[in-house]
């Protein structure tokens, strides 16, 4: 199967390596295999594959990860703009939104 990769260099994911203790939790929760462990620290392997779901940052007990989370959903963003609210997701799918 072909790989799905979305736009390049837009993702807001950031790693503070000093805080990382190499526990590997982020690897366990990431649905897009963004991380890899090397030398007892985690590394961002494929940043463009990140969908900004926020699972890694939420489950990193040492707060080494930050990401601006949200749903990548155009219809939700349009609805949010029209109603003047945050982008909401109508959740139509088995995946997100």
């Amino acid at each position: 199967m072909r790989k799905f990769v979305y736009l390049k260099n837009v993702v807001t994911l950031q790693l503070d390596k000093d805080k990382c203790n190499g526990c590997g939790m982020c690897i366990k929760v990431c649905p897009h295999a963004v991380f890899e462990i090397s030398n007892k620290k985690v590394e961002i392997l494929q940043k463009d594959a990140c969908m900004e779901c926020g699972a890694c940052a939420l489950n990193c007990a040492s707060e080494a990860l930050t990401v601006k989370t949200g749903v990548g959903c155009a219809a939700g963003i349009i609805e949010g703009m029209l109603k003047g609210t945050e982008p909401t997701c109508s959740c139509s799918s088995a995946g997100c939104c």
Binding site: F4, V11, T12, E52, G72, C73, A74, I77, C96, C97
Partner: peptide
């Protein structure tokens, strides 16, 4: 097709905003 970003499982908010 742009609206299908919501149903897809790999689009990020930053990406969709840029695309839009």
């Amino acid at each position: 097709a742009m609206n299908f970003t919501g149903a897809s499982t790999y689009t990020s908010l930053s990406g969709v905003l840029k695309e839009m």
